[in-house]
Design a protein around this nucleic acid. Structure first.
Lengths: 230, 230
DNA sequence: CGTGAAGTTGATGTATCTCAATTGTCGTGG
DNA sequence: CCACGACAATTGAGATACATCAACTTCACG
């Protein structure tokens, strides 16, 4: 029989793809349940409380991972960029999604359906190992965030956040970096864990210190500074 | 050859042990590198920045997972109770420990050395799957904590924390639960992410509201209330 | 019974929340 | 192209919560 093509073969993130170790007959299992899906900005990929229907890999755009409390308040736990994996926690534990995934920009995701993903995992322990490492990496980021919240001021954390966003969404010209914010100010506040009003005042303070300028969703900042993720 | 005994067979947490799926010839690999270690209170099991030397499972006592910032401030990321797994993040990712593990009470841990643990994982994908699920579970707890910090007051979070500690360390008598705190007030503050002085005042407020009484390391509270959290 | 660490208290400044009112932004229909 | 409405974002004022520094007290322990 002919050698089947790997569904991620043409993806620019193939080198780091979770599914890269899949080979031989398992490729056809993977292909069978592999689908792509385009999402308009604002569209919800999966809802909080829904059962897992597979593993998602962001191909284009930007996905927000949110969590809503019973009282209505929301947290933005993570921004998922192209090449990143989402929805795997519910997949691994076989429990319902505890978060909601919403496209912030027009996006595309690749999906491997739950049942077949399980089969591939059984057949390819390397994939399972990759998933475990993914999990451990995200755990690290979570720990970083908890420590960061405990030890730096919200103003500095906002500056850091804008820096990180600038790295992904900004264009540089004459030492001035400029971007259109991909997320609302409410979302920025949800990332930091402060109220929207407080966020507005933090922004004003950064501006008055000359660390940035903003007008609507457009933001300008100066140079580099190192950064670690949200 | 004779059937070799599983090293965790007599452990009271055997049913939920990570290593339970290990069988056949792999049991001898496991036995070869399986060691137990007793720790005095205050002793450090592994240091932040040290390379992984294996996977640890708490057998008795209580272990604190801490992280220290360059500026000297510390966070207490997790309390590990008997039956729980620690040190697996560094093991999985092959990176250095980002946290320190310190015994808060006289404790005992079971250790599977790094190299052999890797071999067992290769031979038993069920173990790898269990490790991945462990990771996903801890990720959930981290997310819960981030949301909790964003939406409830530190006073309520302290009450919740004391409740959880009471569930593990308290004894009940005539609807009064009583415990000797296993951790210092500084550690309590580090869990909540507040200063020690603030913690002291939060305690005083809880007392004045009649939600608890404290004298030194002894604490009394009333009834149940449900609890999640560290 | 002294000693150092752990815990507390007071005073003061800063940061954040809350509620209400206002302004700004953006898409839509005229 | 502009007016309009819905919603996002900002502002103000007052109350609450937390950090910080320094001094003090309590506790565990040799």
């Amino acid at each position: 029989m002919a050698i089947e093509a790997h569904p991620c073969a043409n993806c620019s993130f193939y080198e780091h793809s979770l599914w890269r170790p899949v080979a031989g007959g398992n490729i056809s299992t993977l292909n069978r349940s592999f689908t792509r899906r385009n999402l308009d900005a604002g569209h919800v990929l999966y809802h909080q409380g829904a059962p897992s229907d597979g593993v998602y890999c962001v191909s284009q755009g930007l996905i927000a991972i949110r969590s809503f409390a019973p009282n209505g308040s929301s947290s933005l736990l993570r921004l998922a960029y192209p090449g990143e994996l989402i929805g795997y926690r519910a997949f691994l534990t076989e429990r319902d999604h505890r978060t909601e995934a919403q496209a912030l920009l027009p996006s595309r995701v690749c999906i491997v359906a739950h049942r077949d993903a399980k089969n591939v995992l059984r057949a390819c322990p390397e994939v399972l190992a990759g998933l475990a490492i993914h999990c451990a990496d995200e755990l690290d980021r979570c720990h970083d965030r908890i420590q960061d919240a405990a030890r730096s001021s919200n103003k500095d954390r906002l500056a850091q956040l804008l820096d990180d966003l600038m790295a992904s969404h900004g264009t540089e010209k004459h030492d001035i970096r400029r971007m259109r914010l991909p997320i609302s100010r409410q979302d920025l506040a949800d990332i930091l864990g402060v109220q929207a009003e407080t966020l507005s005042r933090l922004m004003k303070r950064l501006e008055s210190e000359g660390r940035m300028r903003s007008s609507g969703r457009w933001i300008e900042m100066h140079k580099p500074m190192t950064g670690t993720g949200i």
